[in-house]
């Protein structure tokens, strides 16, 4: 996973080590043995005067292929596929490391939940206590649905619980996969702003597409003195609020997961950074780094759950706010 030999021989570059792990990539780098990179090449899909599909292994060692290259550091689109001629970006829907990570996590999630659902199809839940996978997942599902969704959304919660449960488990499994340091895991999926942006957009549509008329009245014509509405200060603030809520969801999940990855990688990077500084310093700092790494890994497990929980809870609260009960007074 780490360029050990290279680290020992030349200066270890912490920032490229960290960013190499948290950014997206066109191949999935697994490890480096004797200076030889072992990575899984992933399909590159470009739409640029037709569809171009080829393996990312064509770009190995900075090679050009079919008029495209990966922009080196210093260029505006560093690390991305650009046209060789002018350095501009084609429409790029490659299956990158993060996309593959998402696919793997999604496949695991679907299998887990459908197996759990299958138990309920094949057994009578009134006569049997759930066993195995259903016994493992049911308490979590019930906790999220009854303690988070039901309390936050209100009486109509049954309509929204599939979305909120999907969001919870989707974020949770991607967070957990991000902690696993080797192949099927390790992709910084939920610490990528594109992923959290899509999650936040889904919540945005869930909130605003199904908001009732009291919700829209509170936004466009709230119960405040007339001059606050005539010069539309309050409506502007409320409409802004519609967007800041999912925006905060996006940033919170992104920043928390990214920060977790960066912290963990920094601590591990300490070992390689001090490799050139003599065995005493390196040994003692390695010991500290391992202890700290264990602590941070445990913390990340907690954060993985908490962030999924918080995203679900806040989404539920926003959906609940979009269904105000008409106040009768």
């Amino acid at each position: 996973m780490l360029p050990l030999r290279a680290a020992a021989e030349e200066k270890f570059d912490v920032s490229s080590f960290i960013f190499g792990h948290i950014s997206d990539a066109y191949d999935w780098h697994i490890t480096t043995i004797n200076g030889k990179h072992i990575s899984i090449p992933l399909p590159v899909i470009l739409i640029d005067d037709g569809l171009h599909v080829f393996s990312s292994s064509k770009f190995e060692h900075g090679a050009e292929y079919g008029g495209y290259r990966i922009a080196p550091d210093g260029e505006p689109h560093a690390g991305k596929i650009v046209r060789s001629a002018d350095g501009s970006r084609p429409l790029d829907i490659s299956i990158t490391k993060n996309v593959l990570g998402l696919l793997i996590a999604s496949a695991i999630l679907i299998v887990l939940i459908l197996l759990c659902a299958r138990w309920y199809r094949t057994h009578d839940p009134l006569k049997e206590a759930p066993k195995g996978l259903a016994g493992l997942l049911e308490p979590v599902i019930v906790m999220i649905e009854q303690d988070v969704i039901k309390d936050a959304v209100g009486p109509e919660y049954r309509k929204y619980s599939p979305y909120l449960l999907t969001a919870f488990f989707f974020i949770l499994i991607n967070n957990l996969m991000g902690i696993v340091p080797f192949f099927p895991g390790g992709a910084n999926v939920t610490g990528n702003i594109a992923v959290t942006l899509v999650m936040a957009l889904f919540t945005f549509f869930m909130v605003n597409l199904f908001g009732n008329k009291h919700y829209w009245k509170e936004i466009l014509w709230p119960d405040v003195p007339l001059f606050l509405k005539a010069i539309p200060i309050m409506p502007v603030i409320e409409i802004l609020g519609m967007f800041t809520k999912p925006f905060s969801l996006m940033i919170r999940l992104f920043a928390n997961m990214l920060a977790g990855h960066i912290m963990l990688l920094s601590v591990i990077g300490l070992i390689f950074l001090t490799a050139a500084m003599g065995p005493v310093l390196n040994g003692s700092l390695s010991f500290v780094a391992v202890l700290f790494g264990i602590f941070l890994d445990c913390l990340e497990l907690l954060v993985a759950f908490i962030q999924a929980y918080v995203f679900t809870m806040l989404s539920a609260v926003f959906i609940g706010l979009a269904h105000p009960q008409h106040e009768t007074n």
Binding site: I22, G79, D92, T96, V99, L102, N192, A194, V198, F202
Partner: peptide, 22 residues
């Protein structure tokens, strides 16, 4: 380092994948 610029390809795939999962 495009950490805070969402990449279009990933956006596209995330919408597709999350949509299908959902």
């Amino acid at each position: 380092m495009s950490l805070i610029t969402p990449d279009f390809g990933l956006l596209f795939w995330m919408v597709v994948i999350f949509g299908v999962v959902f």
